[in-house]
Every structure is written in C-alpha cells, then in structure tokens.
C-alpha cells in the first residue's frame, strides 16, 4: 500500500471515530441530564444533599426488571409504572425521614440520607442478590446504521424519552403555578411561606418529582445496561458532578452540565486515557471552581 493511501485511510478512520464519539456523547448526555435535573431540584429547593438519588435510580431499574421479566408486563407500561413508583418512593422518603428534620442543619439531614442509602442498597442485594439481571427490550436488535456510525434503537428511545422528560420538567418549573411556588421557595423560603406557599408540600412534591426523574432514568437505562445493586453509586456520583457544573437548582444548568460531562468523558477516554473516564467529571469541577466558582448557570451567589 502506498503511504498516501494509508494516510487517507487513517484520516477517514479517525473522522469516523470522532463522529462516533460525538454521537455516543449526545445519547449519553441526555440520560446524564435527566439524572442531574432531579438532584439539582432537590438540592436547590430543599438544601438536602440527597444520597438516596442513586438508589432511587436503581429502584427504577429493579421495578422495571420485576415487571417486565417475571411478570411479563408491557415494556412501555412498566416504564410508566416504574416512574410512578419512583415518585411514591420519593414522597415516602421525604415524609418519613426528612419532614421531621426541616430545621435541622445540613449535616444532620445528610447523615440520615447516607444511612438510608446504605440500607436501601443492601436491601436491593438481599431482595434480588448480587447477580446481574438484564431486561429484554422490544426494539430491533440490529442497530441503526448511518455510514460508519451506528446507534442502537434502545438508546435512541432512551434519548427521546429523556428529552421529553427534561422538556416537561422545564415547563413544569417555569410555566405552572406549582413551578412558581417552587421558584419562590428557592429564592426566599421565608417570604414564600409568608405569601401563602405551603413549604412542606413544596418540599414533598420536589423530592417526589426529583425521585420520579431518577427512577425514570433507572427504568430507561436498566434495559441498556444490566441491573445490579451497586448501579446507583456510579449514577449518583455523575449526578453530583453535573449539579456542581450546572449550578444549584438550575434545570438548564443541569441539562447543559449533563452534556458537557458526557462529551468530556467520551472525548477524554477516546483521546487521552480510558482509565480516567470517570475522573473527567471531577476534574471539570475543579477547573470550574478555579475559573468560575459560582458554576455555569448559578441562580444565586454561592459564596456566603
């Protein structure tokens, strides 16, 4: 082979590789954003560092597994049910554990959430064992191919649903009465209360909504990956990174943060080192802190 031909060949290969990385990042970013939004709302409104977020995500995946595999429930019906149960679980956690700690300081609530996280994760292992489970999906097994690029139908579906949920949350927060109460609570809790906003209800609703989104993410990604008890840990650490990137309480910030993280991971592991893939998010956080400590889309100054 002539040297010129080799060069051209390699260039085409690397362009294909770049495009494939980009496509992977966009698909991945959608689910990251979904994970981040739920957490950022809880964070922003309730000032609670929610360590159960990852476990609610795993819960969504396990509900999906239990409904689809042994019970044979329709895939799409199961998806809706998983999200609904996630909302209920979130409301239960809030009412049971957090509502009584409303005036407690941040480390008290956080310890409670850490305790709940440990207990939940191990309950999952007790109930379903540590063996990985997979969920069958109704999509064609052959991927969608476009030139040298390809993506599975399942991931495309995940991306579409995630985008819908993100748009829905954005609408809910910015254009509804509930959203107004939410934003008012975020800006000034005491004044909002004086103006007639039921803070306790806003809290429960926020936690339920955030948990519903996490459960939806788990139910969507369960069929893409496999379902294991420790799956929530990785998801939670990504969600934390996204919240910092985007800024506290910002839906837009979490969305953009999710995509930035996905691109950093894909390109970083593709061109720097695959071992540091999961470090990218944290490295980004440190860079952001150096350059712009308020986060990319902070709604409120975070230096007290």
């Amino acid at each position: 082979m002539r040297p010129g031909a080799l060069d051209r060949d390699q260039r085409r290969f690397s362009l294909d590789q770049l495009l494939q990385h980009g496509l992977n990042a966009i698909i991945l970013g959608g689910t990251y954003a979904l994970l981040g939004i739920g957490l950022t709302l809880i964070f922003g409104i309730m000032k609670v560092v929610n360590f159960t977020h990852g476990e609610v995500y795993a819960f969504g995946a396990y509900v999906m597994f239990a409904l689809v595999m042994p019970l044979g429930v329709n895939f799409f019906v199961a998806l809706v049910l998983a999200m609904a149960l996630g909302i209920l679980l979130g409301a239960a956690i809030e009412l049971l554990l957090l509502s009584r700690l409303r005036d407690a300081d941040i480390d008290t609530t956080m310890l409670v959430m850490i305790g709940a996280w440990i207990a939940m994760q191990n309950t999952e292992q007790l109930a379903w064992t540590g063996v990985a489970h997979s969920i069958k999906n109704p999509f064609p097994p052959e991927p969608l191919v476009w030139g040298a690029l390809s993506v599975s139908w399942n991931r495309l579906f995940v991306f579409a649903v995630a985008s819908l949920l993100i748009a829905g949350t954005y609408y809910l927060v910015n254009w509804t009465k509930f959203g107004k109460a939410l934003r008012a609570t975020f800006q000034d809790r005491d004044t909002a209360a004086l103006m007639g906003v039921r803070i306790d209800r806003v809290n429960t609703a926020t936690f339920a909504l955030g948990s519903g989104l996490a459960a939806a993410a788990g139910a969507l990604l369960g069929p893409v990956f496999v379902v294991v008890p420790t799956m929530g840990d990785l998801a939670a650490s990504k969600a934390f990174a996204i919240v910092i990137l985007g800024g506290l309480g910002s839906v837009v910030g979490a969305t953009v943060g999710g995509f930035i993280l996905a691109f950093a991971e894909e390109l970083g592991s593709g061109y720097i080192s695959s071992g540091y893939r999961d470090a990218m998010g944290f490295v980004l956080i440190i860079l952001i802190l150096l350059v712009r400590p308020t986060g990319l889309f902070a709604l409120k100054e975070r230096i007290s």
Binding site: F13, S14, Q17, G268, S269, S274, G275, R277, D278
Partner: peptide, 22 residues
Amino acid sequence: SETMDPKATDFSAQLAKIKASG
C-alpha cells in the same frame, strides 16, 4: 490495549477506539 474500571458500565469510548484500530 484499552483498560476499564471493574465497576464501569459504559464502554462506548473504548469500543470506538478499538473499532478504529481495525
């Protein structure tokens, strides 16, 4: 030779690189 963390779940980046290696 690509590596992965024993807990990782997404290998899209490694696989894209392996595909490019041919």
